[in-house]
Design a binder for these strands. Structure first.
Lengths: 335, 335
DNA sequence: CCCCAAAATGTAAACGTTTACATGCGCTTC
DNA sequence: GAAGCGCATGTAAACGTTTACATTTTGGGG
C-alpha cells in the first residue's frame, strides 16, 4: 500500500492541527513561515504522502486524465504518449493509460472502469465511427477524440490532415509525370487509412485520371503487408510507375520487395510513404514521406482536454486539424 | 468530474440500503437474484459508477500500478507498455504512466506524486545505478526494477540478457573469421549499453583478441549517431571488417552511411544490431540482430509486481533475466 | 404452528482529506 | 486601556465507499 503516515500523525507530531498541515501541503493560504518549515520537516521525517483517494473524494477531482489507445504497434504510440504525458505533467496531472482494445465491448469496459478515476479522457480510436461506448459517458464529460471521425460534431476532436497530406503527395507524384500510381491502403475500418485513400483518389481525379481499382491494394500498416502488396505489384505485366503506401512501415516493406524482385527504386518504380518516421531517411533509397508531428498531436489533445476540464464555461467544442508537410527524398526520384 | 450518482442515490432509488448496493457492485456475498438485477437496473439507469477514490480510501488499495519510463523514443517503449497494460488489465489493475524524466530531481518528484496513488511501481530506469530517489520509498513498497542495475539485491529486478546476447553475437562474428570488430556503443550511463559493451569485450577476450579502444565508437542509440559513427569508420585507412551496433536503430544508420561511402554490406563490412525491431528484416541487406521479446519483459515485470502486491508473504525478491536469441540475416554475411 | 438456523439486508463507523466557520491572539487606534 | 480588526490556527462536517455487526426475513423440522 501507499503511505502509512497520515495527516493526523503529522499534525500530532508537529503539534498543530490537521487543517494547518493540509494548508502547508497545499502551499495555500497564510501559514507562518515557522510553522511551515516545522510541518514540512515532520512530514519528510515521517515520509508522509497525502492519500490521493481521500483528496479526490472531497475535492471531487482526481488530477488524472485517462488515455485510451488503439492496439497499435510502432513509434506512433510512444510519440503520442510522450506528448500527452509531458503536457499533463507540466499541468500537474497524471496519466492513466489503457492500450490495445480488441473490440467495442473492450472499449466499453475500459471506459466504465476509468470513469470515477479520471477527470477527462483522450480517446484515440482511429475508427470510422465514434465508438458507441462514448454515449455511456455523461453529456458534459470532458473528452477529446483523436483521429476519430465524429460526424456529429458533438465532441472535441483532433485529427491529422491525412486527406491533405495524401493529396499533396499524390500531386507531387503526378508532377513527376507518374500516371499509374498504386496505393497500398491501411486497415479498412481505420480512419487515417480511409482519409489517406480519399486524398489519393481526389488528387487523381483532379488530374483527370480515372480511378482504377486494380491499383488499390489492401494492407494493414505492417511492414509485412507492404511487402506482400509490392510482391504482387512487381509480378504484374503492366506495373504502376509509382507506389504510395499509406504509412512508412508498409513503404519500407515495399522497398524490400521491389529490391528482391530486382527492380530499382526510384528508376523502375517510385515509392513513397506517410508519417515520416525517423527511420525513413536511413533506408535505401531514403524514403519520401508525409511528415506528421505526432508528439504535437498528443500535446494539442491534452491542452484541449485541460481547457475543457478547467474552464468549461470558456471552452467550446471544435475540431482541430494537425497539418502535415511533404518531405521529398530520393525514393520518388526527380523529374 | 466523474460520476454524479452516488451509491446512496442508487440505494434510495432501488429501495435498498447502501450496503446491499455495495455488495451487488462487488459481486460478492449473498444477494438475492431479484435484488441483484433490481439494483443493477437502477445503477445503469442512473449511470452510477463507483468513486475510485472513496473505494481506495477504505480498502487501502488503488488497483493501480505506476510505471516510470525513461525518456526513450522508438518501439521499445510502446512494446513494453503493451505488455504491462495487457497483463495489468487481465488482473483488473490500472496503469498510471509517467515518461520522459530529465534527471534525478524529476524522478523524485514523479515518485512522490505517484505514491498514495498506486499500489506498486515498475521502474524502468536504464541507469547504471539505482536512482537515489528509490530510497525515499517505504522499505516494503512493492517495486520492480527493469533494466536497472541493482547491486544491492534489495529489489526485484528484471533485465534483458544484454551481456549474453552481445557475447553470442560477437562470437558469431568471430566464427565468421572477423578479427577487427568495431562496436558502436549506446549512451554511456545506460545499463543496456554498458552490458552489451561488456559482452562484446568478453567475447573478444575469450577469442584471444586484445581490446582496441579505437574500435569502440560512442553512439546514443539514435539512427543519426550510428550513421556518424559509421562515416567515421568508413574513412579510416584500416577499416574493421565488422561493426556491431548496440541497437538496431544505430545499425540501420550505419548501413546507410556505408552505402553512402560506396561500401558493400556484408562484403566490405559486416553490420549487426541488437533488439531485432520489426524493421530489421526489411532493410537492405536484412539485418542480423539479437532478438529481445520486449512485450514479454513488460508482462514479466507486471506479474512479479502483482505477486509482490498480492502475496507479499510468498513473494521473494530476486533478479530475473530475459533471454535473447540470435537472429542471423544477410547483413553479416556467411563464412 | 413455533422455534431456530441460515440467509438476506440494514446500520453505522471508519478511511484521510479539505474547508467553512469559529476561535484566539497580537496590533493598531482611539 | 478598551475596542476592533486581521491573521494564524483549530474544530468539525462532509465526501462515497466498505464492512463488522445487528437486525430482519426466510424456510424447514419438530
Amino acid at each position: 500500500m501507499a503511505a502509512n503516515a497520515t495527516i493526523k500523525h503529522v499534525a500530532r507530531e508537529a503539534g498543530v492541527s490537521v487543517a494547518t498541515v493540509s494548508r502547508v501541503m497545499n502551499e495555500s493560504s497564510l501559514v507562518t513561515e515557522h510553522t511551515r518549515v516545522q510541518v514540512l520537516e515532520v512530514a519528510t521525517r515521517l515520509g508522509y504522502v497525502p492519500h490521493g483517494g481521500a483528496r479526490s473524494l472531497i475535492t471531487n477531482r482526481t488530477s488524472t486524465i485517462g488515455v485510451l489507445l488503439p492496439d497499435l504497434y510502432g513509434e506512433f504510440f510512444s510519440e503520442v504518449i510522450r506528448g500527452i504525458d509531458q503536457t499533463a505533467r507540466r499541468h500537474h496531472y497524471h496519466v492513466l493509460v489503457s492500450s490495445s482494445h480488441a473490440d467495442q465491448k473492450d472499449i466499453e469496459a475500459v471506459l466504465r472502469s476509468m470513469r470515477g478515476r479520471v477527470d477527462g479522457l483522450i480517446l484515440m480510436v482511429p475508427e470510422i465511427q465514434v465508438p458507441p461506448a462514448v454515449a455511456l459517458l455523461p453529456e458534459d464529460f470532458p473528452l477529446v477524440l483523436v483521429n476519430c471521425s465524429d460526424e456529429s460534431g458533438h465532441h472535441d476532436a483532433i485529427t491529422v490532415a491525412n486527406y491533405d497530406g495524401a493529396y499533396a503527395m499524390t500531386m507531387h507524384l503526378l508532377g513527376l509525370r507518374h500516371r499509374q500510381i498504386a496505393m497500398i491502403t491501411g486497415t479498412p475500418r481505420n480512419l487515417d487509412a480511409a482519409e489517406r485513400l480519399r486524398g489519393y483518389r481526389a488528387a487523381l481525379k483532379d488530374a483527370g485520371i480515372s480511378p482504377d481499382g486494380a491499383l488499390e491494394l489492401s494492407g494493414d500498416f505492417s511492414e509485412t503487408s507492404g511487402f506482400h502488396a509490392a510482391v504482387e505489384l512487381a509480378r504484374r505485366p503492366f506495373r504502376p510507375s509509382a507506389v504510395f503506401a499509406a504509412n512508412d512501415a508498409m513503404a519500407i516493406g515495399a522497398l524490400s520487395a521491389f529490391r528482391d524482385a530486382g527492380l530499382s527504386v526510384p528508376n523502375d518504380v517510385a515509392v513513397v510513404g506517410f508519417d515520416d518516421i525517423p527511420m525513413a531517411r536511413f533506408v535505401e533509397p531514403p524514403l519520401s514521406s508525409v511528415h506528421v508531428d505526432i508528439s504535437a498531436l498528443g500535446e494539442c489533445a491534452t491542452l484541449r482536454l485541460l481547457q475543457a476540464m478547467q474552464q468549461p464555461e470558456v471552452h467550446e467544442v471544435r475540431r482541430e486539424i494537425m497539418p502535415t508537410t511533404l518531405v521529398v527524398r530520393r525514393s520518388c526520384g526527380t523529374q
